[in-house]
Simulated assay, not measured.
Amino acid sequence: MEVKPEQVLSLIKTTSNLPLVKVNREEYLAAEFAPLYPKLVEEILEKGPYEAGVPLEVIEKKAKAALIMKQEKQQQYHLLQDYLEVLL
């Protein structure tokens, strides 16, 4: 199978745009908790969700969802990495 330069460049561009680890804490907390607790957003940003009064069950649910998303992104990254190794 012949790999065209455009395919490799497209793959590199796609992988370089993947957000793998970086998270803006304030943006994340606001996005996750503002819909459920709009009156607590400032306190959540200042103290953290638990100290601001968000129930532990809600925090755990959000944390598990974030971990699952991170694992999926890592799997995608590793698949792309393996694909690049095969191509090159």
Rank of each mutant, 00 (worst) to 15 (best):
M69H: 12
K4N: 09
E42D: 15
Q7M: 11
E42R: 14
Q71L: 14
E43Y: 10
K61M: 08
E57N: 09
E6W: 12
V41E: 02
S10W: 13
F33W: 00
Q74M: 14
K39I: 04
A63S: 11
Q74G: 08
V23Y: 05
L18R: 07
M1F: 13
Q75H: 14
D82N: 15
A63M: 10
K22E: 13
E32D: 07
E6N: 07
Q81P: 08
A63R: 11
Q71D: 12
K73T: 12
K22V: 08
I68N: 04
Q75W: 11
L45N: 03
P5I: 06
E6S: 10
Y50C: 13
Y83N: 12
Q74Y: 14
P55D: 03
S10L: 13
Y83L: 15
M69L: 12
Y28Q: 06
T14K: 11
L20T: 05
L11R: 04
I68L: 08
T15L: 10
A34Y: 01
E85L: 10
L18N: 05
A31L: 03
L88P: 01
L29G: 00
G48K: 05
K47Y: 07
Q81Y: 15
P35H: 01
G48M: 07
N17M: 13
E85N: 11
L87Y: 03
E6D: 10
L67M: 11
L67Y: 07
L18S: 06
E2S: 12
Q71R: 13
Q74H: 11
P35T: 00
K62W: 01
L9W: 15
Q7K: 09
Y77D: 12
A66P: 07
E85G: 06
T15P: 05
L88Y: 11
E26H: 04
L79W: 15
T15M: 14
P38F: 04
E72Y: 05
Y77G: 08
E57I: 14
E46T: 12
L80P: 07
V58D: 02
V23A: 08
N17P: 05
E27M: 06
T14L: 08
A31M: 04
S10M: 14
N17C: 07
L80E: 08
L9M: 14
Q7Y: 10
L79H: 15
E42L: 15
P49E: 00
K47I: 02
Q74F: 12
K70T: 06
L29M: 02
G53P: 02
N17S: 12
S16V: 08
L36I: 03
E32F: 01
P55T: 04
L80I: 10
K73D: 09
R25C: 03
H78S: 14
E85D: 14
E2C: 08
K62T: 02
K64C: 04
I59C: 01
Y37E: 03
L87W: 04
E43D: 15
K4Y: 11
V54T: 00
E85K: 11
L40S: 07
V23E: 13
L9A: 12
R25P: 06
E2L: 10
K47L: 10
K62Y: 03
V3M: 02
K39A: 13
P19Q: 08
E32L: 06
G53E: 02
Q76R: 14
V8A: 06
V58R: 01
L45C: 05
M1C: 09
K22S: 11
E2Q: 12
A66V: 02
Q71A: 13
E72I: 07
L88D: 06
M69R: 13
Y28D: 03
A30Y: 00
A63D: 08
N24K: 08
